[in-house]
Amino acid sequence: MNDIERDKKYNDYVQAKIPKTKNFPTLIYSYLVGGIICLLGQGIHDAILAIWPQVTQEQANVWMLIVLIFIASFLTGLGLYDKIGIFAGGGSIVPITGFSNSITSPAMEYKKEGIIFGICVKMFSVAGPVIVNGVVISFIIGLIYLFI
């Protein structure tokens, strides 16, 4: 049974019925947590440059990302990152630590299905699209630069 008008009316009614939650605090939390993660990154970056002066700016940047990825992966393992996520939302999804979390969490989750079919296959079930899309877009941008 299909009735387009009835369905549309019902969908509009449901949309109006959905409780309006207070979103403002979560914006503040995401700002705070996101900002703090970036501060941490800058701190790591500057510390690396201070300890190893021969490291280039560029290399220090990669090291900084690796350290952040390590921290996020470890916190995910301890079961703490999802708790930050409930509080911070976008604040812990958007930084590179969120990328790390979205790779470590399915790997952990599906390890009972085995190392090959669990960990290795499912590892990219959340973050896979990011890498695929990223590679495609870098290819397109490279191609455009090749011809201009």
Binding site: Y31, G34, I37, I93
Partner: peptide, 11 residues
């Protein structure tokens, strides 16, 4: 700036 980018994600 970092916080702002994250907040855009939350929005």
């Amino acid at each position: 700036v970092g916080g702002l980018i994250c907040m855009l994600g939350q929005i």
